[in-house]
Simulated assay, not measured.
Amino acid sequence: MYLEFVSDRQRRRLRRVALTWLAAAMTCGYLLPWAVATTRGKANAGAIGVLNVALGWTVVGWIVALGLACGRHGIAGLRVTD
């Protein structure tokens, strides 16, 4: 019997990742936190994108969004396997 932690990490979707990196490149890095969150498969990538668009124009908002994007994945549950 094995115990395994299950994180909130989502599978990457190539089209979504490519779109976010294109948007980050076109905005000269303004949307970089959203691209990083999407690439890492963060469950709250949409919320990070909204935060980035809404408050990213302030330096503090952009740094907070980047910190959320680079943060650890949350634990969603525990899986028991035989």
Results as ranks from 00 to 15, higher is better:
M1N: 11
M1K: 10
M1P: 06
M1I: 04
Y2T: 13
Y2H: 09
E4H: 05
V6A: 09
V6P: 01
S7K: 04
S7G: 09
D8T: 13
R9V: 08
R9H: 07
Q10P: 02
Q10W: 01
R12E: 11
R12Y: 01
R15I: 15
R15F: 10
R15L: 13
R16T: 14
R16D: 15
R16V: 15
V17T: 15
A18N: 11
L19G: 01
T20Q: 01
T20M: 07
A23K: 02
A23F: 00
A23I: 13
A24Q: 10
M26G: 07
M26E: 14
C28L: 15
G29Q: 11
Y30E: 05
L31T: 07
P33F: 13
W34M: 13
W34V: 03
A37R: 09
A37G: 06
T39L: 14
R40N: 14
R40D: 14
G41P: 09
G41A: 12
K42D: 01
K42L: 08
K42F: 03
K42A: 03
N44Q: 11
A45M: 10
A45S: 15
G46M: 12
A47H: 10
A47D: 13
I48C: 05
I48A: 04
I48H: 06
G49V: 10
G49Q: 00
L51A: 14
L51Y: 07
N52I: 01
V53S: 04
V53D: 02
A54I: 12
A54Q: 14
L55Q: 11
L55V: 05
G56T: 03
G56K: 04
G56F: 01
W57S: 12
T58L: 08
T58M: 06
V60R: 09
G61I: 07
G61Q: 10
I63F: 14
A65P: 09
L68M: 14
A69L: 09
C70H: 03
C70F: 02
C70N: 06
C70W: 06
G71W: 10
G71Q: 03
R72V: 03
H73M: 08
G74Q: 02
I75H: 02
I75C: 09
A76G: 03
G77V: 01
G77K: 00
V80S: 07
D82M: 08
